[in-house]
Design a protein around this nucleic acid. Structure first.
Lengths: 219, 219
DNA sequence: GGAATTTAATGCGAAATGGTACAAAAAAAG
DNA sequence: CTTTTTTTGTACCATTTCGCATTAAATTCC
């Protein structure tokens, strides 16, 4: 079984001369970059269909190096999951903090989501949703992670609608929980449709209709 | 590599004495039952994580028999997909044909969906949604299948809302397309949350809120 | 009874998979 | 220069995976 040839892709950064030099042969990769590359792969094929050879190839790291740096395949998957949340989910939710009205908030949020879901050669959708489909049943830890992920999304939308009520953008008679859950449902739907090949133009129409429905008649 | 011991689970039916007897050793399985068993497995783990040994075990068929009866693993997967649509999706949509009002229609539909998604030891969610996650990117044929599947769901909801308008249950000013897409989004969301371990009580609450939002103020 | 037919059962091959052991390479430290 | 440390690179292991070939078993037909 032949290990793949090294590819200087996840290239190590120049040493910053503020700490004692680290002994030993220098790393030929940058862990952060490697995780990002692994994430890209896992987003495409999921856990089971992505092999260590695939990961080795995309990162330019040999398999022993992958193990040394990240642990086993599952551990690497969990790291990529956390990276996805840090790099994509958290910045998305931060969009809500802008001082704009509810419709613009939602519009920007869903736009950002679509940018993420549709970036790359293939539309990959939301990694959290894909993870539920592939690993939630077999792995209770992962199920717990995604369960939490979905609850966080509901909460973010909840905050958003409560803020809209406070700012007088929505009547205080609305059911915030129901709206939040429907907004999350819209997000999941965009993810799934994107991955199923629905074009951006149609997804934009869905966003528009959802915002109209969620926010009610313009005030 | 040891082939698993046979298990008389997918048992052949008694021959109906209306045609010439078929030569050869009798089958020890019933193809329809085997497909159903395979479906159950694929619903749990998806394509890549379900091996032929797994399928062999659950159906009681040796691997050559699986190949002989259904073709390769992917062909079997496609057959199980079709079976899911025939056995679950089509009967669900048939619920809409009952002569009841829109709210009751949606309530029964989502209830039926939850029954399907939550039946079994583990909540498996909707097979179409799970299939998008696992195989849509690598396999254009499967992507086309699920794309169509989602369009069909949108259409069924569309029919439902147009019927409600005709029967005076909803105003004719509503955006039917947006409502349909939101209703589909609700369905996908239920599937994903079910698989993530959200309990039925919470899912029922989501259904209730969704129906209220989709149907607007009671008329 | 033997031949023909169909299916089950067993074994195998080639490749893939996740993971590890060990030697070689590349650096710092003394 | 040697020793220590860290990483790369190669090879290997044990198992699994998918698919197939062949033999044995079970039936019908003549």
């Amino acid at each position: 079984m032949v290990q793949k040839k090294k590819k200087l892709v996840a290239v190590a950064k120049p040493e910053v001369a503020t700490e004692p030099k680290r002994r030993g042969r220098p790393r030929a990769y940058e862990p952060d970059v490697a995780i990002e590359q692994a994430l890209a792969l896992f987003r495409k094929g999921g856990f089971a269909a992505t092999s260590l050879d695939d990961l080795s190839e995309v990162t330019g790291m040999n398999r022993p190096s992958l193990y040394g740096a990240f642990g086993d395949k599952r551990a690497l998957y969990l790291k990529t999951y956390q990276r996805y949340r840090d790099d994509y989910t958290v910045p998305m939710v931060a969009i809500f903090k802008a001082d704009i009205d509810i419709r613009e908030r939602l519009r920007r949020f869903f736009d950002a989501a679509l940018d993420i879901y549709l970036t790359g050669e293939e539309p990959r959708g939301c990694f959290t949703v894909m993870t539920v489909a592939s690993d939630a049943i077999a792995d209770p830890d992962i199920r717990e992670l995604v369960y939490r992920g979905f609850a966080d999304v509901d909460d973010a939308f909840g905050w958003c609608f409560r803020t809209a009520i406070k700012r007088g953008e929505m009547p205080d008679t609305v059911d915030v929980a129901a709206l939040s859950q429907m907004a999350s449902a819209t997000l999941f739907s965009l993810s799934i449709r994107a991955r199923a090949g629905v074009p951006r133009t149609e997804l934009d129409v869905i966003v528009k209709g959802a915002i109209a429905l969620l926010c009610g008649p313009a005030r």
